[in-house]
Nucleic acid binder design. Sequence first.
DNA 1: AATGAATGAGTTTTCATTCAT
DNA 2: TATGAATGAAAACTCATTCAT
Lengths: 192, 192, 192, 192
Amino acid sequence: MDNKKERIIHAAIDVFCEKGIEKAKVSDIVKKAGIAQGTFYIYFSSKLAVMPSIAQVMVEKMLVEINNKVKNSDSFIDQLKSVIEAVFSITKDFREIQAMIYAGLASAEFLQEWETIYSPYYAWMSEFLSLAKENNILRDTVDPDQTAVILIGLIESVAEQTFLYSHGDRDMAEIKKNEVLNFVLHGLGVKF
Amino acid sequence: MDNKKERIIHAAIDVFCEKGIEKAKVSDIVKKAGIAQGTFYIYFSSKLAVMPSIAQVMVEKMLVEINNKVKNSDSFIDQLKSVIEAVFSITKDFREIQAMIYAGLASAEFLQEWETIYSPYYAWMSEFLSLAKENNILRDTVDPDQTAVILIGLIESVAEQTFLYSHGDRDMAEIKKNEVLNFVLHGLGVKF
Amino acid sequence: MDNKKERIIHAAIDVFCEKGIEKAKVSDIVKKAGIAQGTFYIYFSSKLAVMPSIAQVMVEKMLVEINNKVKNSDSFIDQLKSVIEAVFSITKDFREIQAMIYAGLASAEFLQEWETIYSPYYAWMSEFLSLAKENNILRDTVDPDQTAVILIGLIESVAEQTFLYSHGDRDMAEIKKNEVLNFVLHGLGVKF
Amino acid sequence: MDNKKERIIHAAIDVFCEKGIEKAKVSDIVKKAGIAQGTFYIYFSSKLAVMPSIAQVMVEKMLVEINNKVKNSDSFIDQLKSVIEAVFSITKDFREIQAMIYAGLASAEFLQEWETIYSPYYAWMSEFLSLAKENNILRDTVDPDQTAVILIGLIESVAEQTFLYSHGDRDMAEIKKNEVLNFVLHGLGVKF
DNA sequence: AATGAATGAGTTTTCATTCAT
DNA sequence: TATGAATGAAAACTCATTCAT
């Protein structure tokens, strides 16, 4: 059943979060998933081969979080705030996973896959900017596709940096988010 | 000789680039460095303990590249262009290492060290912005420290994305750099 | 259907030829046989339990080949030539299987079975010699049963050696066959 | 030290003899050799990779046994008897190893090696026959190289068959040896 | 009878680290 | 300092066999 594959992926995410990248073992994953060691290898050829599936889940989580936070009725600025909130929130919970995925990219035998997996995320952001541009809220020179990449990279990297160095300092996160919002608003040339 | 330590660090960089974080072995590193297995442990207490040294080298490389490209006599915009050039250039050559360092950060233990290592990089950028702000080139609301983090994250992440997905497409890099420059100029509220 | 059992045996022969004894898996056999993993165990109690059936098939092949080649109307020498031809021919095609069966013998459990399986082969050869002896063609001291073992061992081992070390060299096979024939004729004390 | 490699090879021979092919484990071998598990892999890349070394030792054992038994002062017939004794003796003690080596040959990635390893054995036998031929003891048509192969194959295969099917029956071995001797004397056309 | 996903004990294999030289 | 063979605990991975369907 595909149920088993799901369980492996989610167990893998949990274990990586708890134990960190280096110390996570397949045996931990299967224990958490409640399956036999051998079953793991029916679904994934090796420990590394789970990564694309994890990335997929992370993208899904991100899109769900964004959709939960961003209300169509809100103003563009509020929507942007919500996007930043969403990215910070997911990054806080899954910072290690994100780092692991980046590292996984490096040793990629999967490059083609990664593009496919991430495209919905970039596509959403691009669409979000397109809409705003059509509504004449952004400067004319904004290219939605290019800017989507910039926005995602910018927000994620600041979020990572935030939760990496300021464990528990809640104010710091708020300050960072505000600073990001402010910079992005100017970067996009948002008309108030 | 300190020469040996250097050789270990550079061999480690090479091996991590080639094999990725999971598969790099101490035996590969020492082979490449041309030293004995045991010698490694004279200079580094463990395999992970090389990481800070690698990060250090990367930061140095980055600052050297920036100092080579950025001329004090240039206008702020040209200097910014040069910074972007520098970051893209280093990222192109050492993308895997950057990813690895991010992942290495995750398995912490060294957190304190990391901040010390990276601070010259952030400090340079902050100083760069401070100077521009004093010269009234930027919008008043720019906070140099905060914005340094934003700028570095933004440029690096786009650079990574560029070289990860568009192997060899030279035009793509140019387009991305321009787009980044444009966005940053607006984000900083640069007065032309 | 008994058809399935046949398919398993022949698939097993193929797989053992291709992969060798150590690396052959039940999963390979069932894949080749086009049946489910579990079905294997309906027909054979374990992986090793196929071996006797394989040996049986090999003996049958050998006897069929001999019966095809050896004509009753031929002279003894021509019949002997044909026997050598037959053994060389089968060995050429199934060298790996023969070796595997020898190895399989080692892990016994089935010793009794093996004797039963091989006896028709030895019996044929013994009968062949008995007839010649009755016709006064062989030296008086030939013991048909003992000599059958000698003859089979002799021909098979040279054939194996031939096809193992002289891949594709057709002349070599002819030379070896002639040498074997010559030696055996003297060994049997054949009266011309 | 090369001492370790030796110990692994001899432990491997012991274990294969005791446990049979299928059931021998690397862990058994290292236990018997008195070394660590990992040490095995310094000297041999896998369990199968020990085989050529084992074959080498077997050839050496055989030549030592032959040299012990065959006295130059003996008549050719007595020398031949001693050769048969030697081959039967070694086969009795290491039948499983021989079978394993044959099977190993089948899955050969080592074919080239095997020829080199076995050549001293064939060379000895060829030289043995050459000498007898020069002394006019054999029929003129004997080709020493070809006949060496025939002789070795003949004696070994009967010996294997003997110890496989007549466990403990000492008389049977004697009968077989006599029969082989007799057949070979005729085959070689030995002049009494 | 047939299936094939699941099992998990058993094995191989790895590799960071040590230590006698 | 430098060496590199040796270690062995720890991990990955295999695969014959079972069993619910």
